[in-house]
Amino acid sequence: MATNGYRNRIITVANQKGGVGKTTTAINLATALAAIGEKVLIVDLDPQGNASTGLGIGRNNREHSSYDLLMGTHSVSETVQETAVPNLHIIPSTMDLLGFEMEISQATDRVFRLRKALISTQAFEYSYILVDCPPSFNLLTMNAMAAAHSVLVPLQCEFFALEGLSQLLETVKQIRGTVNPQLDIQGIVLTMFDARNNLAQQVVNDVRTHLGEKVYHTLIPRNVRVSEAPSYGKPAILYDLKCAGSQAYLQLASEVIQRERQRLAA
């Protein structure tokens, strides 16, 4: 499926703006992919560790983490943990990531640490690897984009959405021109959509007008059950499969796989 030494599909889930549903999308898309038979790994690169918490991995149960993976002291197999979701594993995050940039600022391979770690036998067994980034552009995000085949962008249906999106697209362009020429936009996922809000529909129309087929057809609605799920250490799809948010993420997973098939057939 992959190129450049990989045997899987690595997707970075990123947005420099916080509060757009980035981690929620990473968790639930990964769960949905696992539910339809794919073997999936999440790499939590956010020092806040919300993806890890949202999948039920408590802070006291993160003996080895993505920090250890990036520092090269532990491998994928030594840092990966099972979740309550069959076929879904995670490399959890710890606050140690806050010091990563300072510790390796002089290293010549500082941007390629994640790429090196994921070109391994242990990583090859996953058909999809989703990397959850911090809500900022720093060395962790650069590592994620340098390692990935594509970037999936959750975009909140709000007034300033397009402004933030243009900044992110420029970042992807810069990474493509410097450290990862194969990096592409996997797609734009519109999140927190409220059909009762005229402005939200206007944002949807504007984004589709500007980016066309890069925007997924699936709209992720504002949904109380999706918001509640992380406090129980569960993805929404496990917490309440029938809620509108869970159904939307299952639909999104189908769209992601369909796009991958189209890409391979091209």
Results as ranks from 00 to 15, higher is better:
residue 92 P to H: 04
residue 67 Y to I: 08
residue 233 G to S: 10
residue 187 G to P: 03
residue 207 V to M: 08
residue 169 L to M: 15
residue 82 E to Q: 15
residue 259 R to I: 00
residue 50 N to C: 13
residue 202 Q to F: 02
residue 195 A to G: 12
residue 41 L to A: 12
residue 226 V to I: 15
residue 169 L to A: 08
residue 158 E to I: 09
residue 143 N to D: 11
residue 23 T to L: 07
residue 45 L to G: 03
residue 169 L to G: 07
residue 254 S to I: 02
residue 170 E to T: 14
residue 164 G to S: 05
residue 16 Q to L: 11
residue 72 G to K: 09
residue 97 L to G: 02
residue 22 K to M: 11
residue 52 S to N: 06
residue 177 G to T: 07
residue 133 C to V: 03
residue 1 M to P: 06
residue 43 V to N: 03
residue 197 N to V: 10
residue 127 S to W: 02
residue 223 N to Y: 05
residue 95 M to V: 15
residue 19 G to N: 06
residue 105 S to E: 14
residue 239 Y to H: 15
residue 41 L to G: 04
residue 205 N to H: 10
residue 135 P to I: 13
residue 164 G to Q: 08
residue 110 R to K: 15
residue 162 L to D: 03
residue 209 T to F: 09
residue 70 L to P: 01
residue 217 H to P: 00
residue 32 A to P: 07
residue 159 F to R: 03
residue 258 Q to A: 15
residue 235 P to W: 05
residue 25 T to G: 06
residue 52 S to E: 04
residue 150 S to D: 04
residue 263 R to S: 12
residue 65 S to W: 09
residue 248 A to E: 06
residue 40 V to C: 08
residue 14 A to L: 10
residue 244 A to N: 11
residue 95 M to I: 15
residue 100 F to R: 02
residue 70 L to Q: 00
residue 98 L to I: 13
residue 261 R to D: 08
residue 136 S to I: 05
residue 222 R to C: 05
residue 13 V to A: 01
residue 232 Y to R: 12
residue 148 A to M: 04
residue 188 I to V: 14
residue 51 A to S: 14
residue 142 M to P: 00
residue 150 S to Y: 01
residue 66 S to H: 06
residue 56 G to P: 07
residue 100 F to L: 15
residue 76 V to I: 14
residue 10 I to T: 12
residue 16 Q to W: 06
residue 196 R to D: 04
residue 40 V to G: 03
residue 176 R to M: 02
residue 107 A to L: 14
residue 47 P to W: 02
residue 23 T to A: 10
residue 247 Q to F: 00
residue 104 I to R: 03
residue 260 E to L: 13
residue 39 K to E: 08
residue 229 A to L: 08
residue 68 D to V: 07
residue 201 Q to H: 13
residue 141 T to N: 09
residue 4 N to C: 09
residue 203 V to H: 01
residue 199 L to D: 10
residue 42 I to L: 09
residue 60 N to T: 12
residue 56 G to A: 11
residue 258 Q to I: 00
residue 28 N to I: 06
residue 99 G to A: 14
residue 221 P to E: 05
residue 153 V to I: 15
residue 157 C to Y: 00
residue 138 N to P: 02
residue 155 L to T: 12
residue 192 M to G: 02
residue 94 T to K: 04
residue 172 V to D: 04
residue 117 A to Y: 00
residue 240 D to C: 10
residue 188 I to Y: 04
